[in-house]
Amino acid sequence: MRYSATVLDHFLNPRNAGMMRDPDGTGEEEYEGCGDLTRFFLRVRDGRAVEIRFQTYGCGPTIAAASMASELARGRAVDDLCRLKAQDIETALEGLPEDRRHAADVAAGALRAAALDALGKRG
């Protein structure tokens, strides 16, 4: 199998998929030339992301990366989320094939955008 068991698990059972009403922060990232798009919604309490939702359009790894990113982000300080790297997501997914690395980039970028949006709103 081309993808790790974790990638397949998150693809088949995406965590935190869906929309959110009145989020404290939203952000999206589109991968240029590819059409993959991920959008995150954050609910923030005391500077921490207490609830996260995502929506995505893309290939299997893109869905898995967004799902994994939502798990990694939950409960963490919003400042921290701005520093979450694509590599962190990829590592948590137990690796991505070379030509699918952008899946983690899209998820990290969207999450960062949502965190920055939440910080701006809070500030």
């Binding site: 693809f11 590819c34 059409g35 359009y57 290939c59 299997g60 070379e98 030509d99």
Partner: peptide, 27 residues
């Protein structure tokens, strides 16, 4: 997206082919 359907079916033991491919970030 084609490939996500192909992957979903693959996990059910079904082999079909994607009509559009996203390789190395190029759709």
């Amino acid at each position: 997206e084609s490939e996500s359907i192909v992957l979903g079916l693959d996990l059910k033991g079904i082999g079909v082919s994607a009509g559009s491919a996203c390789t190395a970030g190029n759709v």
